[in-house]
Design a protein around this nucleic acid. Sequence first.
DNA 1: ATCGGGACCTGCTTGC
DNA 2: TGCAAGCAGGTCCCGA
Length: 269
Amino acid sequence: MPELPEVETTVRGIRPWVTGKRIERVVVRQPALRWPVSPEVAALRRTRVTAVSRRAKYLLLDLAQGQVLLHLGMSGGLRVVAAETPPGPHDHVDFHLDQGYLLRFHDPRRFGAVLWVASPGCHALLAGLGPEPLEHPDLGRHLHARSRGRSVALKQLIMDQRIVVGVGNIYAQESLFLAGIRPDRPAGRVSMSRYLRLAEAIQLVLGKAIDAGGTTLRDFADIHGKPGYFVQDLQVYGRGGEPCTRCGKRLSTGVLGQRSTVWCTNCQR
DNA sequence: ATCGGGACCTGCTTGC
DNA sequence: TGCAAGCAGGTCCCGA
């Protein structure tokens, strides 16, 4: 489900319900996620949440002391529901809040994570992350600089969270289509002007997806269970074999970095 | 350092 | 109709 826009949509959705509230206790039904749920998180009692934020595809709950770090993996989601709502399948962790609500972590594939961060921002998973694409003033130059000497496909480069965060398999494909660049081009041999165009496309695509409330595929819904609407704007993702929306040519399908990839051989060069 | 491939896990869709 | 294979939004870790 979640790339940057879906995580951002989730943050914005839960923020007003969670900020300033107290976590009374935490119920862990299934601790075996990507990594075991941190015992420090499971043991939280009567702790105030001071802020809800996002870094890359990680969601952070700031507490009076320490942080809870959440990752939604491929199929995770967070919802705020009434405290008496019975848990369904794959509802692995509940954060019971004061005033009769709870924040519920749901994740069928269990690639997600619920971890403890003792000193804010200080965690191995957060170290070495690249810049936020929507906040970088010179993303194109950054990508160009970081790509020199690299032979990987351009799509793989922009999906590398050490280079730039938040771009996953959907938005990488959409951005490359919008920029008119083939996804399989060796990253190190792409020109500056094309990186400038690509950076603009990444920012436009991510921004539009956030405005639409994310892309809904199988699992994603916002905290009210409402779908994201960006799916209607998808030009290439999941459309292999269908006609290109720009030129009508049949869209090509391939695999890059073990991830399926769709592009138009006519519009993308 | 960089690269490709395998691993983690469940559920839905596809094809025989 | 039934069952197995294939595929899905992520990313860490390993060996070469």
